[in-house]
């Protein structure tokens, strides 16, 4: 019974993801809005482990989103690889490796320094993409012509088309990522991560190598970011250089805080909020650029008054926090 209860969140997420193709058209939400939200949600799963659970506020996640995206897109557009899933995995591995290097340097400082340094490394990665590596990345133009995946099922080759089929492909990957992330935060390892967040001095004092835990959380976040970046190229058929922008890292922070930190699903909800708002406002004259102003103002209100984000206001999933030992909330 308790095992079933522990899987309640997974069940609800799976049901919602499966029902959306039938519900969303009635609510006038296009498939592309949902697919894009899922990519951000996947990006946010890793970031939530890093920030929501471990308490490390990185402003440079775009570095890994872009790395995964451009490595995958380059493999597919240069003719090196034809298998989309394989290219996504290699892009993810590249982002993970890059995360290990950046994390190793950034973690020499904590708190505000960590936020500033990751921001700077994010910007450095953008400049690397933009000029020295432009021969591979296309510089300001990005990489066009990223193919959609073809999957071999029971001897048939099934080409995943844009729209709802691509939604299903990305929703499946998101769900797998969500289940893995839930396992991670519920494991003894995840408990140590939360211990580091709630008391950064005590965790090492009781014998945990906090630095290694932090680095591993950073690398995990980079891996999720890399996979999400690869999917962005597949989804758009084009890998845009703005994956590396500072505003991409910032948007991830906004989505996560607005949706709710330390909930795993919060970043997806936060991302959906702005992506849908943007797609609605773009149809209204003179208000196309207003979504970010609205989103920024809402963010300030949420940070000031509702620290736990809209998701935890509306529904407290409880069991995310009820695993293992009870830790004092911050």
């Amino acid at each position: 019974m308790s095992r079933l209860r522990a899987l309640r969140a997974e069940g609800i997420v799976l049901a919602v993801l499966a029902l959306l193709p039938w519900v969303a058209p009635a609510l006038h939400v296009p498939a592309d809005v949902l697919t894009r939200s899922l990519i951000w949600g996947l990006f946010g799963l890793g970031f939530d482990i890093l920030f929501g659970f471990t308490g490390m506020l990185s402003f440079g996640q775009a570095a890994f989103y872009g790395t995964g995206g451009f490595v995958s897109a380059w493999l597919l557009t240069s003719g090196t690889l034809s298998s989309v899933p394989l290219a996504l995995l290699i892009g993810m591995a590249a982002a993970t490796a890059y995360g290990l290097i950046v994390g190793y340097v950034s973690l020499r400082r904590v708190g505000i320094y960590f936020a500033m340094i990751t921001l700077a490394f994010g910007e450095m990665s953008f400049f690397l993409e933009n000029s020295p590596l432009a021969a591979w990345t296309g510089g300001e133009n990005g990489l066009p012509g990223v193919p959609t995946p073809s999957l071999g099922l029971f001897g048939h080759v099934y080409a995943v088309k844009a729209g709802w089929p691509l939604y299903a492909f990305i929703a499946t990957i998101f769900f797998a990522g969500y289940v893995v992330a839930r396992r991670i935060v519920a494991s003894p390892y995840g408990v140590v991560l939360r211990a580091i967040k709630s008391n950064p001095r005590r965790a090492p004092a009781v014998g945990h190598d906090a630095q290694r835990y932090k680095l591993s959380a950073f690398v995990l976040a980079a891996a999720y970011a890399g996979l999400a970046g690869g999917l962005l190229g597949v989804f758009q058929g084009y890998m845009p250089p703005d994956a590396f922008f500072l505003s991409t890292s910032g948007q991830l922070v906004l989505s996560t805080v607005i949706g709710g930190r330390a909930t795993l699903i919060g970043p997806l909800i936060g991302a959906f909020t702005w992506i849908d708002l943007r797609s609605v406002l773009q149809q209204v004259p003179h208000l196309g650029a207003a979504w970010k102003l609205i989103f920024g103002a809402v963010f300030v209100v949420i940070v000031t008054l509702f620290r736990r984000g809209i998701f935890t206001i509306s529904w407290n999933p409880g069991d995310v926090h009820a695993v293992g030992v009870e830790l004092p909330s911050d």
Partner: peptide, 17 residues
């Protein structure tokens, strides 16, 4: 400190937008 960063970051977005 994370909240201090977040609020100034948010105010910055409101100003720029």
């Amino acid at each position: 400190p994370e909240d201090q960063i977040l609020v100034t970051f948010g105010i910055g977005i409101v100003i720029v937008e």
